[in-house]
């Protein structure tokens, strides 16, 4: 391998496009942080690219005051959505991976298609239905929407994970007299933690970042942070520096998840492409 004649004769040149692209990806982060840490006095569109004189928190404080109720709304919605989704996905994935009941071959593709539909095609019935069952306007209705429309991706991820569990392990436990529930509870659940992490991160991120369901299903007092942030950006009253700080606050939780659990995040992404 060492003596290979690489067609890029000087390999260090490869860093030029890599670094240029890195700058492209970092520019929005740079602007968010640089603006956020400036003092109100320093904030000026003319000097938006220059570094702050020190670390000031006025912008973050102002943005936090604006967005705090919405960030709390998002948290109250995202945590139950992620937990319920992953348990449902785990149960479904287990059944679909192990026990082929009649019609499973038809139901599975139908389930998967639900992952790709444009939600505009179900939005009117969804709103009407939520009104009928008195879940329109609040957070429980939003949780329900995320859980149900999350079933396809969570089921798929768990199914692919359980398909890798050796059959012998399950056969052995069945000979020992465990029923299907026993196999799930004692054998599969304890070894499912990696899949749970993948699915929870996936559902956490997509519910945190969702805008469409939130904007049509919630009243202003229950708005999650994405809707509130968009509203803030559209208003003429709130200064752009506060908008930048607010954007950063809204992005921090999912960024933290990405930084610390990026590998699991990537696995979720890949199962979204049906590559298990």
């Amino acid at each position: 391998m060492k003596q290979q004649t690489n067609f890029f004769t000087a390999r260090s040149w490869l860093y030029v496009p890599l670094v240029l692209l890195a700058i492209f990806y970092l520019v929005p982060m740079y602007i968010m942080l640089v603006t956020g840490f400036k003092s109100f006095a320093e904030v000026d569109l003319q000097t938006m690219w220059s570094l702050p004189s020190g670390l000031h928190f006025e912008n973050f404080t102002a943005a936090w005051e604006q967005l705090q109720p919405n960030i709390i709304n998002t948290l109250l919605m995202v945590v139950p959505a992620a937990i319920i989704s992953s348990f449902l996905g785990s149960i479904n994935g287990f059944v679909l991976a192990r026990w082929k009941f009649p019609g499973a071959d038809i139901i599975f593709p139908l389930l998967l298609f639900g992952m790709f539909i444009p939600y505009q095609s179900i939005l009117i019935p969804l709103v009407e239905f939520m009104r009928t069952i008195y879940l329109y306007g609040g957070l429980p209705g939003l949780v329900l929407a995320h859980v149900i429309y999350g079933i396809p991706i969570t089921t798929l991820t768990f199914r692919n994970y359980y398909a890798t569990v050796p059959k012998e392990l399950l056969e052995a436990s069945r000979i020992d007299g465990a029923g299907i529930l026993g196999v799930y509870w004692y054998i599969l659940l304890p070894i499912s933690i990696p899949a749970f992490v993948v699915v929870m991160i996936w559902q956490f991120t997509s519910a945190w970042n969702d805008f469409l369901f939130a904007v049509v299903l919630t009243n202003p007092e229950n708005w999650p942070v994405t809707v509130a942030l968009n509203n803030m950006a559209g208003s003429q009253i709130i200064a752009w520096n506060v908008q930048m700080a607010g954007s950063f606050l809204a992005a921090v939780p999912t960024l933290i998840v990405y930084i610390f659990l990026g590998r699991y995040f990537l696995r979720g992404l890949m199962s979204g492409a049906l590559k298990g």
């Binding site: 890599l18 968010m32 950006a233 995040f265 992404l269």
Partner: peptide
Amino acid sequence: FFRSLYLFPMAISFIVAGVVWRWLMN
């Protein structure tokens, strides 16, 4: 390092990205 860097925007919402790019593309 580069791979993680190129992938991190995936973790951010379209709304956050949109608000920031709105000012970048002023």
